[in-house]
């Protein structure tokens, strides 16, 4: 069996470059409008992918969408034409089960053709339920088991500091995921090393697989935990693109930056929002129609 490796979609990559330039040049309200429209596109794509595959983690995909869209649309210095460029900024989705949102975003940026998205989780598709860097350009490391992305991001940030090219590393974490101890090993190292070019974003939707985080093993006070580990902490609305963009600004203290992004699991589709059962429940055909209708309203 051949390993299928996806390649850049030049025209989509050009579109993405134009969009990013427009976002950067625009006044804040216009930039937010552009990012909002990009987020809606990604959400519609996610709903379609999961409906088609009959599998996926729709709740977390919809909660992390605005974070990913803001990063790719306004923050990261990346070029889908050169996904392996040494000095690129790096985005690691540690909550790898939300691969659909990442795939939809990467395809929109031109890392690979949009047409591949219909194969999400189909037999032999490069688009596995969890992202694989050896098959999907734009994926920095293979995630899936929780608590893995953060240490790898620390390594990326240490490497960038050794190279001295100023590249940033952003790791996107689930909140439930923070119950894994390896995250705190990584947080401690990053704080000690004062990795100012590292940003950890917590998708704080307050739900994990079966229940609320605070009813399972409480994470609060989360901001204080990061601060105690030597991080500069910013709390923000994780669905407000302007606020997110501001939160992703470079460190002002020489410490790594933790962004606690308060989100709603299932954001954008009312019957999915903030319900534990939609962690990996799959919408019926009728529910897909209803979701599309609501997202395009």
């Amino acid at each position: 069996m051949d390993i299928q490796v996806l390649a850049v979609d030049h025209s989509a990559a050009a579109d993405y470059r134009a969009l990013r330039q427009a976002v950067r040049a625009a006044d804040p309200p216009d930039a937010e409008r552009l990012l909002r429209s990009l987020a809606t596109e990604v959400r519609l794509t996610v709903v379609d992918m999961i409906g088609r595959a009959g599998m996926g983690h729709i709740g977390g995909d919809l909660s992390v969408t605005d974070i990913l869209v803001t990063l790719f649309g306004a923050v990261l210095d990346v070029d889908p034409e050169q996904p392996q460029a040494l000095g690129r900024d790096r985005l690691i989705l540690s909550k790898g089960h939300c691969a659909a949102a990442l795939y939809a975003t990467l395809a929109r940026c031109g890392y690979f053709p949009r047409s591949e998205l219909t194969g999400y989780m189909a037999p032999y598709s490069p688009l596995n339920g969890h992202p694989n860097r050896r098959k999907v350009p734009g994926v920095e490391t293979n995630t899936g088991p929780l608590g893995h992305g953060f240490p790898v991001a620390v390594g990326c940030a240490l490497g960038a500091r050794l190279r001295g090219d100023g590249a940033r590393t952003v790791v996107v974490l689930g909140d439930g995921e923070l119950q894994e101890g390896s995250n705190w090993e990584a947080a401690m190292t990053a704080g000690h090393q004062r990795l100012a070019a590292l940003c950890a974003v917590v998708d704080r939707n307050r739900l994990q697989q079966g229940a609320r985080t605070e009813d399972t093993v409480a994470l609060d006070p989360l901001a204080e935990k990061f601060a105690a580990f030597g991080w500069e902490v910013r709390e923000t609305d994780g669905h407000d693109h302007g606020a997110l963009r501001a939160a992703f600004a470079p460190s002002t203290t020489g410490r790594p930056v933790a962004v606690v992004a308060h989100t709603v699991k299932g954001k954008g589709v009312s019957f999915i929002e903030d319900r534990a059962e939609w962690h990996h429940k799959v919408p019926t055909k009728e529910q897909v129609h209803a979701a599309v209708e609501e997202l395009t309203r």
């Binding site: 790096r90 490391t141 790898v152 390594g155 990326c156 940030a157 240490l158 590393t169």
Partner: peptide, 10 residues
């Protein structure tokens, strides 16, 4: 994990 990240970083 840090080792893997450093490999990613070249």
């Amino acid at each position: 994990g840090v080792g893997a990240g450093l490999a990613n970083a070249g």
